[in-house]
Simulated scan of single mutants.
Amino acid sequence: MTDRIKLVTWNINSVRLRMPIVEQLIEEVAPDVICLQETKCPDANFPENAFRKAGYEHMAIHGQKGYHGVATLSKLPLSNIEKRDFCQVGDSRHVAADVPFNGSSIRLHNFYVPAGGDEPDRTINPKFGHKLDFMVEMLGWLKGEETSKPAILVGDLNVAPYEHDVWSHKKLLKVVSHTPVETELFEQVREAGGWLDAMRQFTPLDEKLYTWWSYRAKDWSAADKGRRLDHVWVSQPLAPYVKGTTVLRDARGWEKPSDHAPVIAEFAI
């Protein structure tokens, strides 16, 4: 019986380019399940052999050439794999699968929500409109039957919802990822499904919590102008089994890093 799971979610920003640091993560953290976003490669070119060699025999991959892409790699069997096309635009931004746990299974959703471009106005920036429409579709789906059972939703959700999820609440209120229209809709999605923000269960709301630091800063760590764009949500039936979450901040400083750090979540009976 599977009574313990260690899961990592990470926007890897090209899985083939950054396979060396994925292998470093595997060596240091030894997760049972890895959820990657922004893999940026079609399914046929995904580095399956490297993952198999590392012990991840089970894969749910939804990729496309050069853009987007999500992949769930697991040491545990995956079943009922589902790939949802949000907004009917053909983007690879979601994959779901069942993972065995506690004599039953967990429904695991892996998401890469659109970033939304630079201008928080859908009339002049269609990318922002796409992001809002994507979240509205999430709102309509990820509740009721989807959350009445043990479920996890992870990924780069591209919204920093709370005041201390960004380096400056005041300065970022008009910056995409922290605008009120985004944060309010984001919370509607979470609350409608009764999802628990697992990361904030272990880091109080008045403490800064980041998972992303821009490449633009010369010294990202010293500047520390971060945002929490990556999330771990759990459904109410799974809430008692969340044992901890950790942002692996050091990984942002590894060789040829992603601009996101991995988030580790642990579940146990």
Rank of each mutant, 00 (worst) to 15 (best):
D224I: 11
T211A: 13
A192D: 04
M199I: 07
A198P: 02
A223N: 14
G193V: 07
M199C: 05
S235D: 07
G193T: 11
F202D: 03
W195E: 02
H231N: 12
R216S: 12
K218P: 15
M199V: 06
D206K: 13
T203C: 10
L196F: 06
H231Y: 15
T211F: 08
E191R: 08
P237Q: 12
L209Q: 01
L196K: 07
L205C: 01
L238H: 00
S177Q: 13
L209I: 00
L209E: 00
E191L: 07
D206R: 06
G194Q: 03
W233N: 10
E191W: 07
Q201W: 02
P237E: 04
W212G: 01
E184R: 11
L229R: 05
R228T: 04
V176D: 15
Q188R: 08
R228P: 04
Q201Y: 01
T203W: 05
M199D: 05
V232R: 04
Q201M: 04
T179H: 14
E207S: 06
R227H: 09
V189T: 08
Q188V: 02
V181C: 14
A223K: 14
F186E: 11
H231T: 09
K218R: 15
T183E: 14
K218C: 04
K218Y: 07
T203H: 10
W212R: 06
H231C: 14
L196C: 07
Y210R: 04
Q236K: 14
D206C: 01
K218L: 11
V232F: 14
S177N: 14
